[in-house]
Design a protein around this nucleic acid. Structure first.
Lengths: 352, 352
DNA sequence: CTGAAAGCGCTAACAA
DNA sequence: TTGTTAGCGCTTTCAG
């Protein structure tokens, strides 16, 4: 069923039908109602392509994610998608499987398809490619730590601050030797966490050598492998207690922390008494681990929601041919979730 | 940059440019190369809408999911999306947040946008609405248990069989009283699991009353609440050991099992010695719980991949104006993952 | 308030 | 092999 057939059925011209669809106020009430009735009856919906061809607007956004699993990405995605749906937009899911080539392929594809906007989550694209995107004049927002791109609109959690607080907390717990397992992705977030950690370590006069920080894959397996290595590095020669020189492990994501917990247990050690472990993110499961994982909560869903809102602001700005505004940067506060795994002595009961 | 400008630059007609795009074999090599060079230079890509208007094909599919979090949905989604990407398609993410109204809204939207196909995950739509979709003649595939819709193409795991095996395993472990926490979503899957459970319980002469089966929300919280209730129901009057009459809990999803584990621990009980717990799904975290969770593995990613393949078969069939084939039903085998939480006595060491 | 007609960018049938 | 032209379905300007 197309507009012509509706017009014929109603005994009017296509223009009039088009008007009741787009500017109903310009149609005589009687005609309008008559036409509307036929539209409803026939369940007519205007052809998407023909419309797009005229408006050159898709009401579609692209969301590029590093991965489908790993709870945090999809929580952000949920926030983005919710806002998009409420705005009458629909979201292309572009999962890059942590492969930058797929990421590029997807972005090219999105631009070809004339999406109205793009959200890049924890993107790891080159400067060159980023400026190419910029030239395409397509509204875009970055979600996730991105200190290196001040010229892009972005949303992130204040990970540096979170890491500072967490490291300080570990120090307060009385831990002397604190190691860090630093996930290689999302790169920039881990870097901020690392900085926060290093600053506090130095400020509080803790030892800090290359042994303290390991780069690991941002996954459960990565955490497991990294923790094993770290434990063996921190074992006194001849000691039969593995990791006897290590007090605590700070993992740059909860996923890594899960793996680290497993490794510590496998060594026959007790968390937090032998080695304390803390994470970053507060994934849904962290409260169910044994012991419950102390971590820094990032407001993932909110990050998605804010990111989407900025994007739609940009889109609307562009539609109105407004000036390009200066990039907005939203930084959301993190929250300490003190549970059992950090070994906090005094207030442990009240802060689960 | 549009086809006209390319044509002018190359000194040919638009038709020739269109040909090098769609039927390059019909263009003289020399002209073809000349035009191609200009196309590359200008980074010209044909207007998506104009193309669609002619082909009436979007190379887009819609994927309707119950939820973004909860690992299993997104694992399936990852499989679907991967196949779609390889086929040059792109996927609309439609997260219905467990609200059937949003689900309908999304499906209408997808149809309006003329997607080439739709995948419904664990859908809970009415018969009436389903037959409306059918009338739209849009290729569609169901993923997830769906015994009630033999006339739709579908992919599922053999949950009934999985539940049979798991229940038998619990019986073999020596458990007498086995309760079931049955998630209300995805409805049909839980039903199949329930049936498998009941059959084995009856066949092996176990007690089976209304106390044995609780409907709970399919979430960690649901599992927690359900387990608490079940434990108190199965406590002898006057006993100071909660749940002393209960040997094991079979949860219809790993998520529910997580909550149940938490509840059992909160009661001061030991898993599996006091109460054994098993789940269904084998989510990524199940191997990290303490104790590690015995469960039935569903091949989620594979379900997505197969679902997508069926969908593309349907799409290609439709393009060729082929006959509508009879619906295909793919049933994938599940796999027992015997770990510690079931309390299996003999082979426990070898089967983690 | 309504209709006729041009045009959005592209494809494909038909002609040359 | 290439060009001309009629649409695809809709919106919108311009007349009436």
């Amino acid at each position: 069923m197309n507009i012509k057939q509706i017009a014929k059925k109603a005994g009017v011209s296509v223009a009039t039908v088009s008007r009741v669809l787009n500017h109903p106020e310009n149609v005589a009430p009687a005609t309008r109602e008559r036409i509307q009735k036929i539209i409803d009856q026939e369940e007519y919906t205007p052809n998407w392509f023909a419309r797009g061809l005229n408006f050159n607007k898709t009401r579609t956004i692209g969301l590029v994610t590093p991965h489908t699993v790993g709870s945090c990405y999809m929580e952000i995605a949920g926030g983005v998608e919710e806002v998009a749906r409420q705005k009458g937009y629909i979201t292309f899911m572009c999962n890059m499987e942590r492969d930058p080539d797929i990421e590029k392929e997807y972005i090219n594809h999105l631009i070809t398809r004339k999406v109205d906007g793009i959200i890049l989550m924890y993107s790891s694209l080159s400067d060159e490619y980023m400026s190419w995107i910029r030239e395409e004049k397509i509204p875009a927002v970055l979600i996730g730590e991105n200190e290196l791109r001040p010229d892009w609109d972005s949303v992130k959690a204040d990970c540096r601050d979170g890491a500072v607080k967490m490291t300080a907390h570990l120090v307060e717990c009385g831990h002397e030797t604190i190691g860090m397992l630093c996930g290689n992705a999302p790169e920039n977030e881990a870097n901020s966490i690392l900085q926060g950690y290093k600053n506090v370590m130095k400020a509080s006069g803790k030892k800090l050598s290359s042994k303290n920080v390991y780069d690991v894959e941002n996954s459960i397996e990565g955490g497991y492998i990294g923790a094993k290595r770290m434990i063996s590095e921190f074992t006194s020669p001849g000691s039969d207690v593995p990791g006897d020189q290590l007090d605590a492990i700070f993992a740059s994501s909860d996923e890594i922390a899960y793996g680290a917990m497993d490794a510590v247990k496998d060594c026959g050690l007790c968390i937090p008494d032998d080695i304390a472990i803390v994470g970053f993110g507060n994934y849904k499961m962290s409260n169910l681990m044994e012991p419950k994982l102390t971590t820094v909560e990032e407001p993932y869903r909110l990050m998605g929601i804010y990111g989407a809102r900025i994007l739609f602001d940009l889109i609307e700005e562009k539609e109105k041919n407004g000036e390009e505004s200066t990039p907005k940067h939203i930084i959301l506060k993190t929250k300490m979730r003190i549970r059992k795994s950090c070994g906090h002595k005094e207030r442990i009961g009240e802060m689960f």
